[in-house]
Simulated scan of single mutants.
Amino acid sequence: MSSPLLPIVRTAKSHRATGRVTLTDVAQAAGVSPSTVSRALRGERAVDPALIERVQAVSVKLGYVPDPAARALASQRSNHVAILIPLLSNALFVDLLDAAQKTLRAAGYQTLMGVTHYDASEEEQLLREQLLHRPAGLLVTGLDHNPVTRQLMDSSQVPCVHLMDLPAADQGEGPYCVGFRQTDAGAAMTRHLLQTGRTRIAFAAAQLDPRVMQRLYGWRTALQEAGYYEPALEFLNPAPSSLALGGVLFEQIMRQRPAVDAIFFCNDDLAQGALMAALRMGIQVPSQVAIAGFNDLTGSDQMLPPLTTVRTPRAQIGQAAAEMLLTLMRSEAPASAQVDLGFEILQRQST
């Protein structure tokens, strides 16, 4: 049952010359301190739900609208977290963003998102813009940034956690980050294909962002170790990843290198497009050629045949990175500077 409202002892009119209703007005009307009003309106878990409801009702009645600029000026930092991701058209980043945002909102923080489109200069400009708003923290995708962006992150002294990538094991701790090693995942899928008896394994990639190139390196390393590496079996296209491009790449590979017995696609949408092209072309998967993908995107388990892929923990990465950032924003040290959430090879009927 909801707690009854305290009597409203003030009207909506503020003593400010501007007539704007202030946080102090809401606090006096609700019979609590301004800091309690601030915490209640942010929805912090430590505040009693009945008190949150009471303060929200008072603020609505008075017509109070929070002023984020004034809040940031008073505290030298806002209650928002800036998040930079490469794309919104890729379910990978949507899942990551959703998990991070839920975790941050539960702690009373808002998120301000920027989309970099895999462009280093655009990432730099977005970061400059975000830092003008004095964010409480930063979540940034990847570890590959231009020198100016790195300098901006370091000099801002804003707590920052990197998403998706981890430094190589021999590079030391590096920055705060949550993810997995893309190179290891690429090598693991290649070894899986080798274990099924395939020896002429092509690698097909689009977008060619740093994480894709790390998967390529893992593929190369595994084949070199096994003695089956052929540079001619690399098919790299800088265009955005899509089902349509996957079909094009599959047709290109089968036309130029018909003896391949497996194709490792850098992303599931490419592999899904390849499976559709194989059906059109009458090519049997996996008896003629095995097909594998990466990320276990929606629909991969429903393909014909179901797609073998690397399952990546993107929602868990978003949540864990947000939790690490919350720790840093409390001026506390995380248990570890790096959190490796690993990956999983999902063997289905396409290999």
Rank of each mutant, 00 (worst) to 15 (best):
R150I: 10
A337I: 00
E332V: 02
H80K: 06
D209Y: 14
L23E: 14
G19M: 00
W219N: 01
R71F: 12
W219V: 02
R348H: 09
R311T: 10
R348S: 07
E323D: 15
G186W: 06
V289L: 11
G186K: 09
E53H: 05
S241P: 09
A40Q: 09
T221W: 13
P7E: 06
R215A: 04
L152G: 00
A239Y: 00
Y118S: 14
P135H: 02
D95S: 12
A271P: 07
R257Q: 15
R215C: 02
D48T: 08
S14Q: 02
A259W: 14
Q125F: 09
M213G: 12
T36L: 13
V81A: 13
V47T: 07
G273E: 02
Y228D: 11
M303Q: 13
V289Q: 12
H15Q: 08
P147S: 06
E173C: 04
Y217V: 05
Q171D: 13
V339L: 13
G247N: 01
R211D: 00
G246K: 01
Q130L: 15
D301V: 06
A244R: 08
N146V: 02
M281P: 08
V161S: 01
A277I: 07
R128N: 05
P34W: 05
P210Q: 10
G186A: 07
G179M: 02
H133T: 15
M329L: 01
E230S: 14
L127C: 07
A50T: 15
